[in-house]
């Protein structure tokens, strides 16, 4: 062995192996299965596009549409909710910011299903924590949003909020206070300060948060299952059914590839314009 291997390449080997085995290989398998004849379990069949045709014609566009809609709405709501929260954390909270950050981050360490079941208990009609307490304390009887699309959306916002908030906090902390003051001094109204200074300077953080939230929301199914009941079927649920209950792996694989393609179509144009270096350098 006379040839010298660069240390950088050597250091990359473990993670490259992991990505190859843990990420690229499964995707390749899924891709191959999606081209196999329906309801077969072998990779040796005649390649066909029948599964894709079936995915488009047999009503799977609806769950995909629901997933996209819910992910989009979740991202939008998280954006709107996270901005004032992030501003408060960065600008005004001082020592309280650390405590608030911990309080917001802590639930991430608890299993998502446990938190969603907690939320479900809270929303339960009549006997639930919220409705039950109102009834017991004030004699108020209210309905429940449990097992509706609204509950699903609220659950998704609740679960994914930190993934929007923390990148946004990071982005917003890149905005120098003196530039905000200078803009004010030069006559900018609060909205103009937002548009001219805060938004462009915090954009890398906002973009990362938006991508994280959208991608995670698109892949989410626990919220729909636990809080949504049968109100909405999301695409991940449909895929699970194809692989499990229906025992039709090629069909499930085709749906998976469709979701990957749609996700990529949303993300790559954004990623190309994102300067991640700027976020990391400071």
């Amino acid at each position: 062995m006379r040839q010298r291997v660069s240390p950088g390449l050597l250091a990359m080997l473990p993670v490259m192996a992991l990505i190859l085995v843990g990420f690229a290989l499964p995707i390749l398998l899924v891709l191959l299965y999606s081209l196999m004849p329906p309801r077969t379990f072998s990779l040796a069949g005649e390649p066909t596009l029948a599964n894709y045709w079936a995915a488009v014609t047999e009503g799977y566009l609806l769950p995909l549409g629901w997933s996209l809609l819910l992910a989009g709405l979740t991202t939008l709501l998280c954006l709107v909710l996270a901005w004032p929260t992030a501003k408060a954390l960065v600008r005004f909270a001082g020592r309280f910011a650390t405590l608030a950050t911990i309080l917001i981050a802590l639930p991430i360490f608890i299993s998502e299903s446990v938190r969603l079941f907690g939320t479900a208990l809270f929303m339960m009609p009549g006997g639930g924590i919220f409705a039950g307490s109102l009834n017991a304390l004030f004699g108020l009887k209210i309905g429940s949003i449990l097992y509706t699309r609204t509950a699903t959306l609220l659950g998704m916002v609740y679960i994914h909020f930190p993934f929007m908030l923390f990148p946004m906090v990071l982005g917003l902390s890149l905005v120098p206070q003196d530039q905000i003051e200078a803009a004010c001094d030069l006559g900018a109204r609060p909205f103009q300060v937002f548009r001219e200074i805060e938004l462009p300077l915090a954009l890398p953080g906002i973009t990362v948060g938006t991508l994280l939230t959208f991608v995670l929301s698109l892949g989410a199914n626990a919220e729909a299952a636990i809080l949504g009941g049968q109100a909405v079927i999301v695409i991940t649920k449909a895929i699970e059914q194809r692989f499990g209950y229906a025992q039709d792996w090629p069909s499930g694989a085709a749906l998976t590839v469709l979701v990957i393609l749609v996700t990529a179509a949303v993300i790559f144009p954004v990623l190309r314009r994102l300067d991640l270096d700027r976020l990391i350098r400071r």
């Binding site: 003196d178 530039q179 003051e181 200078a182 004010c184 001094d185 006559g187 200074i197 300077l201």
Partner: peptide, 20 residues
Amino acid sequence: VPANKRPTAMVFQSLALFNH
């Protein structure tokens, strides 16, 4: 009267130029 409504302008110590 807030800064943005005063007919004054400041040159800051840091200059506070808009780097973007």
